[in-house]
């Protein structure tokens, strides 16, 4: 036993170095996309959409993967951010350094109020209420179609500026979005390792026990909900500015379901898994749907398969495979 524990830190350090290296390579590969898609702007736009989807998936994992709260209506915040940013861009200013902080600030406020009610519900009740919230937001777009554009979506969002410079080039957009994704990922990893992140995990693991060690689970869940909603709204705001329009589909339950599937496919609670899941499936969806109209059937079938054979998602399956290989190698060398 003592022997085993003594060698643990060394392996852990080696593992961490390997993981760090892998992350660095993946990050560099992601950043290089505009360099080799220069002639096909469409691919870059698709990649940008994948990055936005990745941010939304990450935001949901910050809730689901941390505290275990299952949201069926995460698109509510994604769409809310898109409409709020789009409307503010049309009415106030195209300066994104003002627009995006404004969107995040309003979302923090609103999600804190709504979250205050939601996080006091447990399990299915929470999930159903998030679904209802999504549909309310969806309906609001049509109720207020005078300013939201209703079914046509919010059109004519001006080209945004950053410090007065117009952001229009696809490559610049991509790097901007990618940078925000990396920053969000870094933030998510940092929180995961902080006392706050560990308290969240304690709630996911055993809420009752968490209460009995004195954790204020209500406040902790609310924090998780607000952080999650705010990041989703930021992604929505970025999409609206990038796309120049927002559509009510962004708020639909189908969008929520897709985000949920990205997270489950990628691996709930793994942070990086949902990001990969979202990126991979946004791109795959595009190509498969151009080949066949029934891509949803394949997608659904694949989803069922993953949930059954790899409940930890693609990343979870990969990680456990990796662990098995390295343990086997260690066992052989020992």
């Amino acid at each position: 036993m003592s022997d085993h524990t003594a060698t643990m830190p060394m392996h852990a350090a080696a593992d961490r170095r390997m993981k760090g290296l892998a992350l660095l390579v993946a990050a560099a590969a992601g950043a290089s996309v505009p360099l080799w898609t220069g002639n096909v702007p469409f691919v870059l736009i698709l990649a940008s959409q994948a990055v936005i989807a990745a941010i939304v998936a990450l935001s949901l994992d910050l809730l689901m993967g941390s505290t275990g709260l299952l949201s069926f209506g995460h698109a509510a915040w994604y769409g809310f951010g898109a409409y709020l940013t789009g409307l503010a861009a049309k009415m106030l200013t195209p300066e994104m350094l003002l627009l995006l902080p404004l969107t995040v600030a309003v979302t923090i406020l609103l999600s804190a109020i709504i979250g205050f009610v939601l996080v006091r519900q447990i399990g299915k009740t929470f999930a159903i209420l998030t679904l209802a919230l999504g549909q309310i937001m969806f309906a609001l777009v049509f109720v207020m179609s005078g300013i939201t554009g209703g079914e046509d979506g919010l059109q004519g969002i001006p080209v945004p500026t950053a410090l007065g410079f117009q952001i229009a080039k696809p490559a610049v957009w991509y790097w901007l979005l990618y940078g925000i994704l990396l920053a969000s990922l870094a933030g998510a990893f940092h929180i995961r390792r902080s006392p706050l992140g560990k308290s969240w995990l304690a709630i996911r693991e055993n809420t009752e026990r968490a209460r009995f060690i004195g954790l204020d689970t209500g406040t902790l869940k609310l924090l998780s909900y607000v952080v999650s909603a705010s990041l989703a709204a930021l992604a929505g705001g970025l999409f609206a500015l990038f796309n120049g329009a927002a559509s009510p589909d962004m708020l639909n339950w189908f969008e929520s379901g897709k985000v949920l599937m990205y997270v489950v496919l990628g691996g709930v609670g793994t942070i990086i898994g949902p990001v990969i899941g979202a990126a991979v499936f946004t791109v795959t969806e595009h190509y498969v749907s151009s080949v066949t109209n029934s891509w949803l059937i394949y997608f659904g079938g694949f989803f069922v398969l993953i949930v059954i054979v790899a409940p930890g998602g693609l990343f979870g399956a990969g990680a456990s495979l990796w662990a098995r290989i390295t343990t086997a190698r260690r066992g052989a060398s020992a």
Binding site: P195, L196, G214, L215
Partner: peptide, 13 residues
């Protein structure tokens, strides 16, 4: 987790 809770550190980032 319990020690951090006792010390009031559970919410720090």
């Amino acid at each position: 987790l319990a020690i951090r809770s006792r010390e009031g550190l559970s919410r720090s980032i």
